[in-house]
Simulated scan of single mutants.
Amino acid sequence: MNEKSLKLLEQYDLELISATRGRGSYICETSLGKKLLTDYTGSEKKIVFTNQLLERMEQKGLHYTDKVMASREGAYLCRDWDDNTCVLKDWQEGRECDTSSAFDVEAATANLAHLHTMMVWPQAEGERLYAGECLTEVWKRHNQELKKVNEFVRKRKQKTEFESMFLKQYPEYARQAREALEMLENSGYETLYRASVEAGEMCHGNYNQHNIYFLGKKQIFTSNFEKCGYDIPVSDLYQFVRKIMEKQEWSLKMGKRMIEAYERIRPLSEGERKYLFIRLCYPEKFWKLANQYYNCRKACLSGKNGEKLKKLAVQEEKRGVFLRQML
């Protein structure tokens, strides 16, 4: 995105006052307040769906999200001179969630629970186009991918540091992956999943510190709902808890505070609590590093992933304690 992209604002009923460049975007001061002109890679159908959801949430009282503004023609998507697809979003400049701050993390977790109470939109079965993929099938695929990477690495004659560490850690994480899948299959997950989808419960889909902005002490602005869809809401909670735990060295105290903050607003059912535990048991970080390595196999990536694999090994004992005592 370059300065010529700002001419796209001529398609909207607003006046541009100033613009500041960001990462692949422009933060624009306009006659209608702050807007974000940014690239968009999804379909128009999905952005319409997402915007309708945010409008429903706004009607319920949630005003701090990045809804997309329609052009004079009523279109949500526009193309710049390089044929990139762009959108113009409502925007608020705030302080990004600090993952080392207990206050920020608890407030962000409570915000997630608040979102989940509002992200309920029952629709007819044929209209539920954006339902999450069955996790059982996802994990079966991931486990096969881990086996494939292990076989590939074993056959390599000269192994990098990452490859040697991977082979050493693989048996333990492969065991964890198999056991987590077995627990999931015997947990009643599919019943819980169907019930969530039929009730119209939804997930943000990408809830992390980069999409959470504090506006003063009380208000939180939540962005990037493009991956939202019908699923068990606890899937969002799992993703956020795991990311924070990796940064907080699997602190049992922090983990409990996060779940307590969530449950003060949206209590978990027994099935949801079991689902959260099983999700945390799966070695997702190990799978991600293996998948990145296999798909890229670049020296620089292997080096960075090697550091992450070392950190994973250091944290493993704390992760085990967390899982045994947390839930």
Rank of each mutant, 00 (worst) to 15 (best):
D83H: 11
G24M: 10
N224R: 15
Y213C: 01
L181A: 04
K304M: 14
W250F: 15
F214S: 08
F277R: 05
Y275C: 13
V68M: 12
N224W: 09
T117M: 01
E125W: 11
L53E: 07
L129C: 05
N211A: 01
S71F: 06
E55V: 05
K45A: 13
L215A: 06
L88G: 02
E270Y: 12
N84V: 06
F166E: 01
E307I: 10
Q325C: 09
R319N: 11
A290I: 02
R319I: 08
C134A: 02
A113G: 01
L146R: 05
K253F: 10
S101I: 04
W250P: 00
K140H: 09
A102S: 09
S25A: 15
I220A: 00
G320T: 11
R266S: 00
L112Q: 06
D39G: 01
I278M: 03
G229N: 07
F221R: 05
Q292I: 14
L112R: 07
Q144G: 15
E106G: 01
D83P: 00
L37W: 14
K288N: 13
F221C: 03
M202S: 06
E182T: 13
S18E: 15
L62K: 10
L62E: 09
V105F: 08
F286Y: 14
N211H: 15
F166A: 01
Y64T: 07
H116G: 02
N111T: 12
E272G: 12
C86K: 12
K46L: 12
C134M: 06
I265N: 02
K308C: 04
P122R: 02
F152T: 11
K227D: 12
K4F: 09
G200I: 06
E96K: 07
D82N: 07
Q239C: 03
I212H: 07
W287P: 04
Y207T: 04
V153A: 04
Y238R: 03
S269N: 00
F286P: 09
F162C: 04
H116T: 04
N206R: 15
Y64Q: 10
T109I: 07
S223R: 07
K310A: 01
T160R: 10
Y12L: 01
P122G: 03
T30H: 08
M245D: 06
W250D: 00
R194P: 10
K60R: 14
Q169V: 04
Q11I: 09
G255Y: 11
R242S: 07
R242K: 05
Y64M: 06
F240K: 02
E249D: 09
I212Q: 06
L215W: 13
S18L: 03
N186I: 00
W81R: 11
D231E: 14
K274D: 03
E161I: 08
K4V: 08
E307C: 04
K318D: 04
V241H: 10
W287Y: 15
